[in-house]
């Protein structure tokens, strides 16, 4: 049994070290608290539970933009197909506190001049 526990512990350590991760997603603890404003072209769209995610090309730099779950996006007025590859989008939201991590959590989106407010209670 000791060997089993030992093997599990070693496997766990290898797995943790083998993958590099940014603490992300839940809440706003991983963001800076201040907003940034980016405009770019959507390159990858991954919508749906547990959260939506875009990859946006901002002047040659790829940013991961976390958007809402389906209900939050729908409440903001987004329709199926609004968030699509090739669409120009402006995003206001909080970036990751890690400056090397090109990731942000969107508060408001602008597509073709229309505003979509994902978090109406945030500035």
């Amino acid at each position: 049994m000791r060997q089993v526990l030992m093997a599990a512990a070693i496997a766990a350590i290898i797995l943790v070290q083998g993958w590099s991760a940014a603490i992300a997603h839940h809440g706003w603890s991983w963001t800076t608290g201040g907003n940034i404003d980016l405009t770019g072209i959507i390159k990858v769209v991954q919508l749906g539970n547990p959260h939506g995610r875009l990859e946006v090309d901002v002047e040659g730099e790829v940013w991961v933009v976390e958007v809402g779950q389906p209900w939050r996006n729908a409440r903001a007025g987004l329709k199926d197909g609004d968030l699509a590859v090739g669409v120009e989008i402006r995003i206001i939201g909080e970036p990751s506190a890690d400056v090397n991590d090109r990731r942000m959590k969107a508060e408001r989106l602008f597509i073709k001049g229309n505003e979509y407010d994902l978090y109406p209670n945030r500035d």
């Binding site: 049994m1 089993v4 526990l5 599990a8 766990a12 991760a21 992300a24 547990p50 990731r103």
Partner: peptide, 20 residues
């Protein structure tokens, strides 16, 4: 082993949502 595995599974399960 039971206590270790189920405690560890609960903790690592919760942590899935906190990494990308």
């Amino acid at each position: 082993v039971s206590i270790g595995c189920w405690s560890g599974a609960l903790l690592s399960g919760r942590l899935i949502a906190f990494v990308d």
